[in-house]
Design a protein around this nucleic acid. Structure first.
Lengths: 137, 137
DNA sequence: TCCAATACCTCTAGTCTCTAGAGCAATATA
DNA sequence: TATATTGCTCTAGAGACTAGAGGTATTGGA
């Protein structure tokens, strides 16, 4: 039986976050010690590692909830799970593209600045005047 | 003189967001009509466009505040503004790198899935078992 | 000129995913 | 056994808005 601190150390999920996940219904309420402290099993550990992993990949709490519920019906086809992952992959790709445009824009802004007075500062001017931008964002 | 709605239409910043920016001290309190409605000038319009642009580029409210305060001292050297932009560029690059690792991981996960039962679903298995990952994330 | 539609006002509370702190209780270690 | 550490609940805060309630101004058309 693991305490919440043990679970935290093993999964890298902070203690208050574990309690938060419980509150959100991502993990079930664990048994308690005589003194009302949470006691976790190996199953809880695996579940939490699953959640952690999903969060690291940027999945939302709701997406993870859905995956958990899917995984509890092992006989169903896995298209649901695949769909969630695919949608997320699309999101990630969109975000990368956006950030790259941003990077480009910022590079231009930064490299134009020569450290003289604010009056001539390209950073400030570029922000004031959208027309100085290359693409749209 | 522009109403808050006009300002919103011209800048693409939603009305409640404009009021929020006022509350946060990003824009100064405008004059009011006889009936207590906000009335904006061309200067306010420019300021808001500046903020909008900064937010589009992903700058935080605090960073924008700092830039505004810098821009109000036109005699000072512009290294401060340049520093803010550079720091942000670093952030953006870090985030792109992270997302690319993620993309890679998700691609692997998705492409392994053959649509059969959940029991064999690679999405679920990959999330359960970090050992199936390529890199660290 | 009057009326209805639209826009505006303030204030409060909610979003999402945690994180921090207060004040107290249980457990582990020396 | 004394003390240090960990745990408990509850509330509030972060950032950057967004939504809704309940009421007031302004605007455009008949």
């Amino acid at each position: 039986m693991l305490s919440i601190g043990d679970l935290s150390k093993r999964t890298g999920v902070k203690v208050p976050t574990i309690r938060y996940y419980e509150q959100m219904g991502l993990i079930s309420e664990p048994d308690r010690s005589e003194g009302n402290q949470r006691r976790y099993t190996r199953t809880d550990l695996e579940r939490l590692a699953f959640i952690r992993h999903g969060r690291d990949l940027g999945l939302t709490i709701d997406a993870i909830k859905e995956l958990i519920s899917l995984s509890q019906h092992p006989d169903r086809p896995c298209v649901g799970a695949d769909r969630i992952a695919k949608e997320h992959l699309d999101d990630v790709r969109t975000k990368i593209a956006q950030l790259k445009r941003l990077e480009h824009e910022l590079e231009r802004i930064v490299s134009h600045c020569d450290g003289h007075s604010i009056e001539d500062c390209y950073v400030i001017r570029a922000l004031s005047d959208h027309g100085l931008c290359d693409g749209e964002h």
